[in-house]
């Protein structure tokens, strides 16, 4: 059977991997190429790189990082951050990305998702959604690294992105990001049940049981995590073994 996926996420700025809490208070976590290689050896199912500053200087550094990782690591690579036009998608794919993640620009210009999926195929277009609970059972889409409210309902927005050609949704709970108290399971379940396409749960993983819950209770097809792997609390192999022991189909 198809395995559930574990996807370590590398937030990259100025050529370094960093990790924040609730989208701020960044802490250095190391060299992205070294970390990518380590996660590949530990059995990561995919890798995600997010360019969290996306200044023009950092952009060049990011391309070199992606190229070097792609030359050595033969699992799917997703790259996001600062993707504004179809040409940005092309450049990232050419640098070695297999999928490109679009967040803020999908809200500003939904046609970009349709154009990019039409040109390069849905399989390489991930729409990232940053979600914040605004009242019980209701979540709103935020953009610009979580700084800007949009008024969009998360479930409706995810369905719209699917209709425009997104191949996958990366759903981050801003309330849980970096908190290590677990994924927002209610949010994850609400969105995944509304979709035909796969969903990656993100934001809040602090224990291995959280990852199990993300799949079993949240219904996620893949779980994304950063902090618990970056600082050596758990290896990816440990996480996969734990999940498999809980009856989840994994690639071991």
């Amino acid at each position: 059977m198809l395995a559930k996926r574990i996807i370590p996420c590398l937030d990259v700025t100025a050529g370094r991997v960093v990790k924040g809490v609730n989208f701020v208070e960044l802490r250095d976590a190391g060299d992205p190429i070294e970390i990518a290689r380590r996660y590949d050896e530990q059995g990561a199912d995919e890798l995600t790189f997010l360019d969290i500053t996306a200044s023009s200087d950092d952009r060049g550094i990011l391309f070199r990082i992606i190229e070097q990782v792609a030359n050595q690591v033969f699992i799917p690579l997703t790259v996001g951050g600062g993707v504004r036009q179809v040409e940005d998608v092309r450049n990232l794919l050419n640098a070695g990305a297999d999928k490109v993640s679009i967040n803020t620009s999908a809200v500003l210009n939904p046609q970009l998702v349709a154009d990019a999926a039409g040109r390069y195929g849905s399989q390489c277009i991930v729409v990232a959604i940053d979600a914040k609970q605004v009242q019980p059972g209701h979540w709103e889409v935020f953009t610009h690294g979580g700084r800007q409210a949009t008024g969009l309902n998360v479930v409706e927005w995810a369905k719209k992105m699917q209709a425009l050609g997104a191949g996958e949704i990366l759903l981050t709970s801003m309330d849980r990001d970096g908190s290590k108290i677990g994924y927002d399971l209610q949010l994850t379940r609400a969105v995944t049940d509304a979709l035909e396409i796969p969903l990656i749960a993100s934001g809040g993983a602090g224990t291995l049981q959280h990852m199990v819950d993300g799949v079993k209770l949240g219904g996620a097809d893949a779980v994304l995590a950063a902090s618990i792997f970056h600082y050596g609390e758990y290896t990816i192999q440990q996480a996969k073994q734990y999940m498999a022991q809980q009856g989840i189909e994994m690639r071991l």
């Binding site: 849905s122 996958e168 049940d193």
Partner: peptide, 13 residues
């Protein structure tokens, strides 16, 4: 009885 998503995406045997 979990919904299987399409595309079929990920690692399969």
């Amino acid at each position: 009885n979990n919904k299987l998503k399409v595309p079929h995406m990920g690692w399969n045997q």
